[in-house]
């Protein structure tokens, strides 16, 4: 790991102090790239878009993912089929999903036709309406929530059955059982999905790239941070600036992650330490 990550990490740090454009000799520019950030309105916009998505998207994905996993964890005839169906969106490549949702979410698309039938006269234009673009991406994310659900599903297998038996003997109902047993036993998985969910939300790229194009959607409404980084590096040929953007990103995310890890001791149930 160290071999293939640490070296390039140092490399990208070095590049962030240059004005390299891939084609010409790089020149050393010191902290110029970092100083530029303060006056770049597109950078501020990209931060806004990304943070908004993280704040609203992550809780929605976590809750729906867990609910879907609980549903799929039931022992019912035909469950293998349902589990496979829920997993299908994960299997589709990004391009197909994007083309599909462009059609479904267009102003005359299927989603809006259904909304009109439900009595909403003027449904939003979703992806092309600046205020609705992020909700649209969240909707698409919920559609593909099956991937997160299978991690929860694996975690649910770990809850020792005798705990449930005990709860049954104690007369606990399903909801109490969930909060008293399932959820605490699931906290290590939860820590994982929450952390990787946040990181994944910060790093949204593929879907935004295909849905909003490299320029980041209408009015920059889909200009997610890494899309902006990509555009600067490979569209605009400013690899140095893009590297500086990346480093600011890493430091900001690291603060969030470390905060969560710090609190983890308090709410994550750990077999290794507790027994």
């Amino acid at each position: 790991m160290a071999v293939f990550t640490v070296g390039p990490i140092i490399g990208s740090l070095v590049i962030s102090f240059t004005d390299w454009n891939l084609l010409s000799e790089p020149g050393w520019v010191g902290l110029d790239n970092y100083a530029r950030l303060a006056t770049d309105p597109e950078f501020i916009n990209a931060v806004n878009v990304t943070v908004t998505y993280v704040i609203f998207g992550v809780p929605i994905f976590q809750v729906t993912g867990l609910l879907v996993a609980l549903l799929l964890n039931l022992v019912l005839p035909g469950m293998r089929i349902f589990r496979t169906i829920m997993f299908l969106p994960t299997v589709l490549s990004g391009v197909a999903v994007a083309v599909l949702w462009q059609q479904l979410l267009s102003s005359e698309g299927a989603v809006n036709q259904i909304l009109r039938m439900l009595g909403i006269a003027n449904p939003p234009a979703w992806l092309t309406s600046p205020g609705w673009a992020i909700p649209a991406v969240i909707v698409i994310g919920v559609w593909g929530v099956g991937a997160g659900a299978i991690i929860y599903l694996a975690g649910l297998q770990n809850v020792p059955p005798q705990l449930y038996e005990q709860a049954t003997i104690d007369g606990a109902g399903p909801i109490r059982t969930f909060f008293a047993i399932t959820l605490p036993m699931l906290t290590p998985t939860l820590l994982f999905t929450v952390l990787t969910g946040i990181i994944g939300a910060f790093q949204v790229f593929d879907m935004a790239f295909i849905l909003g194009g490299p320029k980041g959607g209408v009015g920059g409404s889909l200009s997610f941070y890494l899309l902006y980084v990509w555009g600067q590096a490979f569209g605009n040929g400013r690899l140095g600036y893009a590297s500086a953007l990346s480093w600011v990103f890493v430091i900001a995310c690291a603060v969030v992650v470390i905060l969560i890890l710090r609190t983890a001791d308090r709410w994550v149930f750990d077999e290794s330490e507790s027994r």
Binding site: V3, V6, G7, P8, I10, G11, V14, I15, T18, W20, P26
Partner: peptide, 9 residues
């Protein structure tokens, strides 16, 4: 730059 990378590795 490549040299820095290469030696760091």
């Amino acid at each position: 730059i490549t040299a820095i990378l290469a030696t760091a590795l």
